[in-house]
Simulated scan of single mutants.
Amino acid sequence: MRKLCSLHLLGGKALADWAPTRRAEYRRLVDALRRLHDAGQPVPIFDLLICTLANVVGTIVIGGRVFDNHGDESNKFKDMLSDLLTGGAQFNVGDFFPSIAWMDLQGIQAKMLGVHKRFDALLTRLFEEHQRTRGSRRGAPDFVDKVMANKVSEDGATISDVNVRALICDLFTAGTDTSSVVVEWTLAEMLKNPSILRRLQAETEEVVGRDRLLEESDIPNLPYLQAVCKEGLRLHPSTPLMLPHFSHEDSEVAGFFIPKHTRLLVNVWAIGRDPAVWENPLAFDPDRFLPGGKGERYDPLGSDGNFGFIPFGAGRRSCVGKLVGMLYVQCLVGTLAHAFDWELPEGEEEIDMEAKPGLALPKAVPLKAFARPRLSPAAYV
């Protein structure tokens, strides 16, 4: 399954093949922001990001958009993700005292079972619709089509429908909530530091101009945008404790002895705020990642051998979706900053920067702000 994901979904060629899908959904996001501006309504940032990325993942994985527009159905999906990631991160007495786990003293297992049933109903509907329309769909095969065409591997192992549905669940979970959390936090940090937002807008305007929207191909020419996104990932990593790792044998990492059969959680959140590594670690300062800054040598994809900045992990077990995750964050942050001016609702000059417990550590109070188009009208057509 990992090989199929790398080949058809998350690798360099697959990213290039699906670029038009991402571009179309980003444009729909921009259109939605313009409509909210015309209606005089503030933008529920996180909700729209979830809807956008769910449609990107849906089109790539199952050949169709999941939600027509942001609304009740997309909000239910967002709530399911929130319940899943929040419940999965709760302290559970049964994890530490297995003999009483069956009692479910805190009701966590019952709650997670309810989330599972809701998610499974959604996945069943999507999977059945995908199978039903398989013969009538036009265009290139989607990811599930390619998986189903390779159900039997060279060694005879078979991929079942249950495996495919579980994979779809993983892709929707990992491909929507995590990137949305980082983008929302990064925009909130820039609204707290307007000079950073203005500097980013100046860079995008110089490189991209005012007559078109930012494209993924512009990102290599936008070093300050890259620095802003790295700083967002440093302060607000998408998975602050990563996913649990398990050691099959005794090993040593950075001078620490790890016994075999150890379940290990890596505190990426604390690493990114370590005062021994980062000067003034709680400040949002993208300059630290520009040439001459302390973070210049750090690669967020974890391929530089340094462990002071590993938002996607490092080594063979790093996040398999790190390339697309980084692309999502950079393009969405760049698009939001380039295409719109942002201001907080009247009377809300202060942004609540508290986090809510969960695997992805989202904002406790979702960010809402007014978006005002700043490009020429031709750019939005």
Rank of each mutant, 00 (worst) to 15 (best):
M1T: 02
L4A: 09
K13N: 14
L15M: 06
R23M: 05
L36C: 01
L36H: 05
A39F: 06
G40M: 03
Q41D: 04
V43L: 00
F46Q: 09
L49G: 01
I50V: 13
A54K: 06
V61F: 07
I62T: 08
R65L: 07
H70M: 11
D72K: 03
S74F: 08
G87S: 03
V93A: 13
A101S: 05
D104L: 07
L105W: 05
K111C: 09
K111M: 13
M112K: 11
L113G: 14
A121F: 10
A121D: 11
A121Y: 07
L126R: 04
E129C: 15
H130G: 02
R132K: 15
G135L: 07
G135V: 02
F143L: 03
D145T: 06
N150Y: 05
S153C: 01
T158E: 14
S160C: 05
D161F: 04
R165Q: 15
R165L: 13
A166G: 14
D170I: 10
F172Y: 10
F172I: 07
T173S: 15
T176H: 06
D177Q: 10
D177M: 07
S180T: 02
V181M: 04
E184S: 08
T186S: 01
N193V: 04
Q201R: 02
E205M: 10
E206W: 13
V207N: 03
G209I: 06
L214V: 08
L214N: 00
E216H: 05
G232Q: 04
R234Y: 14
R234N: 12
S238F: 03
P244I: 07
F246I: 08
F246Q: 13
S247I: 01
S251C: 15
R263W: 10
V266Q: 06
N267I: 02
A270M: 07
I271K: 13
D274P: 06
W278M: 04
L282T: 15
D285A: 15
D287E: 12
D287S: 11
E296Q: 13
Y298M: 14
G308P: 06
F309Y: 14
A314M: 09
G315S: 08
R316P: 04
C319G: 01
L327T: 12
T335A: 09
L336R: 00
H338E: 02
F340P: 00
E348R: 13
D352W: 05
E354W: 09
A371N: 01
R372L: 10
